[in-house]
Design a protein around this nucleic acid. Sequence first.
DNA 1: CGCGATTTGTGCACGTCTTCACAAGCGCCT
DNA 2: AGGCGCTTGTGAAGACGTGCACAAATCGCG
Lengths: 256, 256
Amino acid sequence: MSQHRHPGAPGSAGAVPALPDLPEATVARLPEYLRALHNLADAGHETVSSEGLSAAAGVNSAKLRKDLSHLGSYGTRGVGYDVALLIEQIEYVLGLTQRRAVALVGVGNLGHALAGYDGFASRGFRIAALLDADPSRVGEEINGLVVRHVDELPAVAVEESIAIGVIATPAAAAQRVADQLVAVGVTSILNFAPCVLSVPEGVDVRKVDLAIELQILSFHEHRKASLTALPATGGSALTALPGGLAATDTQEAIGT
Amino acid sequence: MSQHRHPGAPGSAGAVPALPDLPEATVARLPEYLRALHNLADAGHETVSSEGLSAAAGVNSAKLRKDLSHLGSYGTRGVGYDVALLIEQIEYVLGLTQRRAVALVGVGNLGHALAGYDGFASRGFRIAALLDADPSRVGEEINGLVVRHVDELPAVAVEESIAIGVIATPAAAAQRVADQLVAVGVTSILNFAPCVLSVPEGVDVRKVDLAIELQILSFHEHRKASLTALPATGGSALTALPGGLAATDTQEAIGT
DNA sequence: CGCGATTTGTGCACGTCTTCACAAGCGCCT
DNA sequence: AGGCGCTTGTGAAGACGTGCACAAATCGCG
Ligand SMILES: NC(=O)c1ccc[n+]([C@@H]2O[C@H](COP(=O)([O-])OP(=O)(O)OC[C@H]3O[C@@H](n4cnc5c(N)ncnc54)[C@H](O)[C@@H]3O)[C@@H](O)[C@H]2O)c1
Ligand SMILES: NC(=O)c1ccc[n+]([C@@H]2O[C@H](COP(=O)([O-])OP(=O)(O)OC[C@H]3O[C@@H](n4cnc5c(N)ncnc54)[C@H](O)[C@@H]3O)[C@@H](O)[C@H]2O)c1
């Protein structure tokens, strides 16, 4: 992944392409397709059918075809999609042709883990700065990066052309940090703190909340339990028993 | 119209198995309401209007009312919702009246952070076991819990009545771990590894993928940039101008 | 050169989610 | 008691997302 030509392109031409207006649901799935495609490429596949790719990504094949058709994608009927080309296309649409610089604010428990995560680098991002408010943490070196004080954010933003801010501070500080990020021009924020952030229009915020995920699972556990407590139909019972391992396909995904 | 069973009876008399069949979208928001409610309760509020709660949770008030109406919840017209009662109701529906035991598999970079996270405990869960395949990690104590070998999973599952499994291993090991979890009766899995898991029907899997979140943000960045850029020729329209954007006041506006 | 096998791209119908708008219910004040 | 303002709960409409089913396109082969 060092070359990137064919930016977009059906119309080819040189000018900046009109970015297709993708449905949110599609945008949320493209990264999944991209990951699956990279796996396929590594495995030596040059082309892949919608059936194959959809299986690898855990979605319905018709949905996948529709998603790809939205970005004016090129598949070949009777053959499938060219893996390398599709990777290029998706990376272009997602804006991954340039490696975006990420600033991570809050280098605590979670922040440390994130700072040391190489999944960022391999998927189009560069952690360009670590920031914290705690003087005792400032100066610490993690993974080759030195933690700087959050007050240096304005300088750092310019130095590193920060495009995305990640908030990993306690909830109480999150809004303040978000304000600071917005103030230096950041228009995309990934928030790990369990709280709602207020930001001006034009700024995108995505939230990751662990406890919420668990609580959703808890609901389904609760529901499953309340169902097994009733059924009278003699069917194939099974409750807590392991039984056989008939792991088959099928999804179980829910969008954010 | 029809009489609803008595609302979440924490005391659980004898039979209240019929759990309302909530829309998935609603289920995903309930935890958010719950968090907001706890904040309100801590702040001393005894009641809250749908307007107030929806603002705190970052959603539309009509949506909130419809969500709550689904779980047969009773608010009082002209007054609002009783905060304490609503908390009870939502916790009941989400199955949080019992503290569910969580097994965390993969105590590496991320696993360490999760193990030390107190947001679990305060939101209805108990990390009951830490498991890893690396012998050199087994025996390590984190936050009062000793890391055990993943092969002990069957024993641990019984000892601790594990209800939910969290996978924080590399992607290559995730499917295997999922199979092991399923084999010991776990029917809810939270997966941090960037891969698709195959599980039998009846098992719920939720995935958290950091890179995907960033890539979605990247798309919107790309889109925003392509909109603001017009005449300038080619090249990436890097926007590193902090002073450019409005200073912004930071109130209102929510990212969806 | 044409044919059959294959696979894409999409029209359409259906289900889910969101949002508006408003009647009905509730408490309070006079 | 009656009226008034406030807030819930919900009908209806529309936006959005999903998946089937099939025509159109393409390849390989005889
Ligand atoms: N640890 C986890 O596994 C985990 C999981 C999910 C969510 N979270 C959430 O992520 C956030 C961080 O969790 P954590 O466990 O790392 O907490 P932590 O207390 O270990 O780390 C927080 C860090 O933020 C820094 N900080 C505080 N105020 C700041 C400010 N104004 N500017 C910059 N830095 C500031 C602190 O100095 C500290 O280093 C919390 O909101 C938590 O709820 C954590
Ligand atoms: N570190 C992060 O911030 C971060 C962020 C997002 C996603 N992730 C994902 O989370 C997962 C873990 O990341 P990490 O940085 O902690 O990796 P890590 O290598 O630090 O830790 C992985 C741990 O899993 C253990 N393990 C390996 N195979 C196992 C098995 N079969 N059974 C039990 N344990 C096993 C290893 O011994 C190791 O302790 C990865 O899939 C990663 O992509 C990590």
